[in-house]
Design a protein around this nucleic acid. Structure first.
Length: 226
DNA sequence: GCCAACGTTGGC
DNA sequence: GCCAACGTTGGC
């Protein structure tokens, strides 16, 4: 049986009960890396990979998905164990430059919905906040780690992670079905959830939310379940 | 650089 | 467990 492809995920554990859960994230495609490199000043480039990486992060802000300044997020997590290379993957992400860009756009203190996916009742269960912005995921350099990536170099790490901290559970479970019903209604009447990425980019595991989307979804916790 | 084949996500 | 959606890969 073939192992899942290496590009799959970098999942460190993000158990919501844990105060300093780490969410490891996405691969940068080689192409992207090259693009980023080309935006850097050619001289004096004996800077550390880390600095280059940070710089790339800043220069990356012009992409189509960064036109808007996002200040809230939705993080998908599978509540049940799924084994990958014999290791329990609590958080995973797609190999996707969008996911990577979003991860890196996360700012200290921003809040994110913690969403349970791939389970009987998918939906939002809680709120976490970013306590450490994107930094290289050390597991990609650890040969014994299931996420070891022989093609990633320390000077230019392919994978990143952020740290999030549990803030609180939502006052009630907010099921996907309910959010979806609003999304459909809002598509017709122009309401705040009309473009919500949970539906327009259904497979993206790290998604930004606008202030309006965040506020609206949060307001649902005050309502009676539907 | 198109696009068919393929593989995975994740709702149902 | 099925399969639609959709991202990725690779042949051309």
């Amino acid at each position: 049986m073939p192992w899942p492809s290496r590009k799959r995920d970098k999942g460190a554990v993000a158990d919501k009960k844990e105060p300093d859960a780490k969410i490891a994230k996405t691969e940068e495609t080689q192409k992207k890396e090259e693009e980023e490199k080309s935006t850097k000043p050619p001289a004096g480039s004996s800077k550390s990979g880390w600095k280059n990486w940070k710089k790339a992060k800043e220069s990356d802000a012009g992409g189509e998905e960064s036109k808007q300044t996002y200040c809230h997020w939705l993080l998908k997590s599978e509540p049940e164990s799924r084994l990958e290379k014999g290791v329990d993957m609590k958080v995973s992400t797609v190999t996707n430059s969008s996911a990577r860009n979003f991860l890196r756009a996360m700012k200290l203190g921003q809040q994110a919905f913690f969403y349970h996916s791939n389970c009987k009742e998918p939906g939002i269960v809680g709120i976490v906040k970013i306590v450490k912005e994107a930094y290289p995921d050390h597991t990609q350099f650890d040969q014994k780690d299931p996420h070891y990536d022989s093609t990633s170099r320390k000077e230019n790490p392919k994978w990143s992670m952020v740290d999030v901290q549990f803030v609180r559970m939502t006052k009630r479970f907010i099921p996907l079905s309910e959010i979806k019903a609003h999304h459909l209604a809002h598509k017709a009447d122009g309401g705040p959830l009309k473009n919500m990425m949970l539906f327009t980019r259904q497979r993206l595991s790290i998604q930004p939310l606008t202030q309006e989307e965040f506020d609206f979804v949060l307001s649902l916790e005050e309502e009676k379940p539907h």
